[in-house]
Write a protein that binds this DNA or RNA. Structure first.
Length: 460
RNA sequence: GGCGCGGUGGCAGAGUGGUUAUGCAGCGGACUGCAACUCCGUUAACGCCGGUUCGAUUCCGACCCGCGCCUCCA
């Protein structure tokens, strides 16, 4: 039995999909005007782990993650770059897919783009206007009337009067209420636009997700997820739109990832303190970044720091070290560790607890190896690799992980030659020379591991 | 101001009404030419004050502190 924390009820609930054995899940994806940052990576990885675990548990998961490919920021950035906006979005989508692949994030089942769903979006807005939940304003925009939906605020626990009273809500004359939000934006001269019953324009952000999820997953589905800053107003607005248009529950379970922080501040584009994934990849292997993200619970806040990433790298090294030189056994039966792992994951995807089980398996492998019991070590290695797979970790060949060339001046051949020279020196008890070689390699980031079978190396 | 989340050993980070989280670091030992890696053993914690209880880090209440959302943001 899997229990999942539901933002709507603010507690963990037993997960029961609408259709037995099937999970329909929608996660808000990127607005593609820039490269992915670590916050995006967190959401990507969190829901990737969730999808992997649900599938591992036997569910057929239909995972939809949208792409917002039309938006103010996209048009502004394209304008600044002096390029057609579709060139910008195509480039960013490609970059996002590259980043995802490096992070070991599996492709979602469907990845709808907003611009491919204009008809559905217009149809949904039409439905809302007809039923009195939305109105066309004098300026050509169409707004959702928040007052027409009594449950508004049920996800974010906000009261409408507090929102209206709040000074930060955009007070715009065309709106009937300050809390109303835009469904359709009238095109400015020269701007890209699509035709609609209210004139040429383009969709607002919130309605895209309502229309696309409706189309891809139906009017009611199991799980809707996203980043923490989407809870309000984006997800609140999605609920209002979808439930008013369809007349029944939109989503059963809402899941939100925790924020990434940098120096005690939220990492975000508006604060300008964000790191792109590719910047981080210049210093740390993608799997190390993934490990860092997976090592704490998906709902907790995590602090990005060099120390934390370095520790993640160290730990991952320990895991691969245990696997090094072993061929995982085939068809290993379920073990107590598999059950402990599942117990942790069943409890709201407790990856930190699950990783503790991985450490126990590593410990076991090392003990078997010390005792020369290669057969049992190989069996435990198989357990480690299959549990790692559920977290999207430890799927590389250990040598590939250790010796991945990060643009170092030394080739594998150079290193092997130096190791041989050191072995010769050791044989003739010229330890000064042996240590000199070891130090020289260390200076260049190569760490040697001596064992009874000989010396292996890795890039540190 | 409103709403919400959290404060766990030197650090990171789970969890629990009474029993070892886990990792890093530290300490003692084994291994090693010396190290690293690995192995064995080990120290150390639950913001503050009350309450409930045989017993609370875990439940309840007050307080202090930190954070998030309330505006586009994952």
């Amino acid at each position: 039995m899997i229990r999942i924390y539901n933002t709507l009820s603010q507690q963990k609930e037993e997960f029961k999909p609408i259709e037995p054995g099937k999970v329909r899940m929608y996660v808000c994806g990127m607005t593609v005007y820039d490269y992915c940052h670590l916050g995006h990576a967190r959401v990507l990885v969190a829901f990737d782990v969730i999808t992997r675990y649900l599938r591992h548990s036997g569910y057929d998961v239909h995972y939809v993650r949208n792409i917002t490919d039309i938006d103010d920021k996209i048009l502004r950035r394209a304008d600044e770059n002096g390029e057609v906006y579709t060139d910008l979005t195509a480039r960013m989508i490609k970059a996002m897919h590259e980043d995802e692949a490096k992070l070991g994030v599996l492709s979602p089942t469907e990845e709808p783009c907003a611009t491919a769903y204009i008809n559905e979006i217009v149809a949904m807005i039409h439905k809302l206007v007809s039923s009195g939940h939305a109105y066309a304003a004098d300026n050509g925009d169409v707004y959702f009337s928040v007052e027409s939906y009594p449950d508004y605020g049920k996800l974010s626990k906000k009261k409408l009067e507090d929102l209206v009273a709040g000074a930060r809500v955009d007070v715009q004359e065309a709106k009937r209420s300050p809390a109303d939000f835009v469904l359709w934006k009238a095109a400015k001269p020269g701007e890209v636009s699509w035709p609609s019953p209210w004139g040429d324009g383009r969709p607002g952000w919130h309605i895209e997700c309502s229309a696309m999820s409706n189309q891809c997953l139906g009017e009611t589905f199991d799980i809707h997820g996203g980043g923490p800053d989407l809870l309000f107003p984006h997800h609140e607005n999605e609920i209002a739109q979808s439930e008013c248009a369809n007349g029944h529950t939109f989503v059963n379970l809402w899941m939100h990832a925790g924020a990434i922080r940098v120096n005690k501040e939220k990492m975000s584009k508006s604060l300008g303190n964000f790191f792109t994934i590719r910047e981080i990849f210049e210093k740390y292997a993608p799997e190390v970044v993934r490990y860092f993200l997976v090592s704490s619970h998906y709902r907790s806040q995590v602090d990005y720091s060099e120390e934390n990433l370095a520790e993640a790298g160290h730990t991952l090294t320990r895991f691969y070290h245990a696997l090094r030189g072993l061929v995982p056994a085939k068809d290993v039966a379920e073990t107590a560790h598999d059950r402990q792992f599942a117990e942790a994951m069943d409890d709201d995807f407790n990856t930190a607890g699950a990783i503790a089980v991985l450490h126990a398996v590593v410990h076991e492998i090392n003990q078997f190896r010390r005792d020369g019991d290669d057969e049992r070590a190989a069996e435990s290695a198989a357990v480690l690799v299959r549990l790692g797979r559920i977290l999207g970790l430890l799927q590389q060949d250990p040598e590939a992980f250790f010796q991945a060339d990060t643009g170092s001046e030394l080739s594998a051949e150079d290193i092997e030659a130096m190791i041989q020279a050191r072995a010769d020196a050791r044989k003739r008890k010229d330890f000064a020379e042996a240590d000199r070689i070891r130090d020289e390699l260390a200076d260049k980031g190569i760490i040697l591991d001596d064992s009874r079978e000989g010396t292996s190396w890795r890039r540190g």
